[in-house]
Amino acid sequence: MSTERFARFADFYPFYLREHADRRNRRLHFIGTTLVLVCLWRLFATGQPVWLLNGLLCGYGFAWIGHFFFEKNRPATFKYPLYSFMGDWVMYADIWRGRVKL
């Protein structure tokens, strides 16, 4: 894990992308984030709080599998929780825009 400290998200995001260099990891993040959106939709549609738990399990579960098995690194979430959360959504949007390859 890097010892860098980041004062701004704009400085953190390039580091975040380097931590997601393996395409399989990015794919798992993409699947997990998509499932989070499905779970949020189900939460609002049903009002059942279990969907919030399901969303957390999908989002973090898929991401952490990608880091531990493919990247062989420690998720940045442990050191930069807010920036990592933001980074996941920005990377997700960048994948849809074609700026980050799946």
Rank of each mutant, 00 (worst) to 15 (best):
Met1Trp: 11
Met1Glu: 12
Ser2Ile: 15
Glu4Phe: 08
Arg5Tyr: 05
Arg5His: 07
Phe6Ala: 04
Phe6Gln: 09
Ala7Cys: 12
Ala7Phe: 14
Ala7Gly: 13
Ala10Leu: 13
Ala10Asp: 14
Pro14Leu: 11
Phe15Pro: 00
Phe15Trp: 13
Tyr16Lys: 02
Tyr16Gln: 01
Tyr16Asn: 01
Leu17Trp: 03
Leu17Val: 06
His20Arg: 04
Ala21Arg: 14
Ala21Ile: 07
Asp22Lys: 12
Asp22Arg: 11
Asp22His: 12
Arg23Leu: 13
Arg23Ile: 15
Arg24Leu: 10
Arg24Ile: 14
Asn25Pro: 01
Asn25Leu: 08
Arg26Ala: 05
Arg26His: 06
Arg27Thr: 14
His29Gln: 13
His29Tyr: 10
Gly32Tyr: 00
Gly32Ile: 00
Gly32Phe: 00
Gly32Gln: 00
Gly32His: 01
Thr34His: 03
Leu35Glu: 12
Val36Gly: 01
Val36Pro: 00
Val36Met: 06
Leu37His: 14
Val38Trp: 13
Cys39Met: 12
Leu40Lys: 09
Trp41Lys: 11
Trp41Glu: 06
Trp41Thr: 13
Arg42Tyr: 05
Arg42Glu: 10
Arg42Lys: 10
Phe44Thr: 08
Ala45Val: 10
Gln48His: 07
Gln48Val: 03
Val50Asp: 01
Trp51Val: 11
Leu52Arg: 07
Leu53Asp: 05
Gly55Ser: 03
Leu56Glu: 04
Leu56Val: 10
Leu56Gln: 05
Leu56Asn: 04
Tyr60Glu: 02
Gly61Arg: 03
Phe62Gln: 01
Phe62Tyr: 05
Phe62Arg: 01
Ala63Pro: 03
Ala63His: 07
Ala63Cys: 11
Ala63Gln: 03
Ile65Phe: 08
His67Gly: 00
Phe68Asn: 02
Phe70Ser: 09
Phe70Ile: 10
Phe70Ala: 06
Phe70Gln: 09
Asn73Phe: 01
Asn73Gln: 13
Pro75Asn: 09
Thr77His: 09
Phe78Cys: 08
Tyr80His: 14
Pro81Thr: 02
Pro81Glu: 01
Leu82Val: 15
Tyr83Gly: 02
Tyr83Leu: 07
Ser84Trp: 07
Ser84Gly: 02
Gly87Tyr: 01
Gly87Thr: 05
Asp88Lys: 06
Asp88Phe: 10
Trp89Ala: 02
Trp89Gln: 08
Val90Gly: 08
Tyr92Met: 15
Ala93Tyr: 13
Ala93Asp: 08
Asp94Phe: 02
Asp94Pro: 02
Asp94Ala: 08
Ile95Ala: 02
Trp96His: 10
Arg97Ser: 05
Arg97His: 04
Arg97Lys: 10
Gly98Cys: 12
Gly98Phe: 14
Arg99Val: 00
Arg99Ser: 07
Arg99Trp: 08
Arg99His: 10
Val100Ser: 03
Leu102Ser: 07
